[in-house]
């Protein structure tokens, strides 16, 4: 069964390290110091921490079964990869934001640094890792990898 990142708002400590880890993982060097000291532009974090103290939690793509973003994509760039996760084909994405328009969680970001064609940026469940970077870095298990218990 496909695992997704489960969010436990009760133990989020608002350290934002999930965002940092995400930026590092999606950078060129994958080296935290090089990313923050040298790489420009820096990647955009695909998870975002929402804060309203004491409440805080990080949220990223939920990889919906009936992903509306995949259905709304104007040229098939938003697709499911072989693992079953919803990912963007960066080569073909044209940044039309149809995915943003329909994403029921509001977790797709705009990367407008690519000049001609903007780029939709979202959690891709770290294809190069067994455990996503944000889950691994979370100091308090507020993000864990777990099975989906889905009901309607």
């Amino acid at each position: 069964m496909m695992k997704i990142i489960k969010v436990n708002e009760d133990v989020c400590v608002l350290c934002h390290l999930c965002e940092i880890a995400c930026i590092v993982e999606h950078s060129e060097s994958k080296d935290i110091l090089k990313v923050f000291k040298r790489e420009k532009p820096r990647p955009i974090a695909r998870c975002a921490v929402e804060e309203d103290k004491p409440l805080s939690f990080s949220l990223m793509c939920r990889h919906c079964d009936d992903a509306p973003c995949v259905k709304a994509c104007s040229n098939g760039s938003m697709h499911r990869d072989e693992r079953g996760y919803v990912v963007v084909d960066e080569e073909t994405c044209i940044g039309c934001w149809m995915c943003i328009m329909v994403c029921p969680y509001g977790v797709i970001r705009r990367d407008e640094r690519r000049q001609k064609w903007n780029l939709s940026t979202k959690c891709n469940m770290c294809p190069d890792r067994d455990i996503p970077a944000c889950v691994e870095v979370c100091p308090n298990e507020a993000l864990v990898l777990g099975d989906v218990v889905e009901c309607t």
């Binding site: 989020c12 004491p54 298990e141």
Partner: peptide, 18 residues
């Protein structure tokens, strides 16, 4: 460290599972 506190924000730092 979220131990000797009743601040709901700080006390989240102790995850009972861990």
């Amino acid at each position: 460290w979220g131990i000797a506190t009743q601040d709901p924000f700080l006390s989240k730092r102790v995850n009972p599972d861990i």
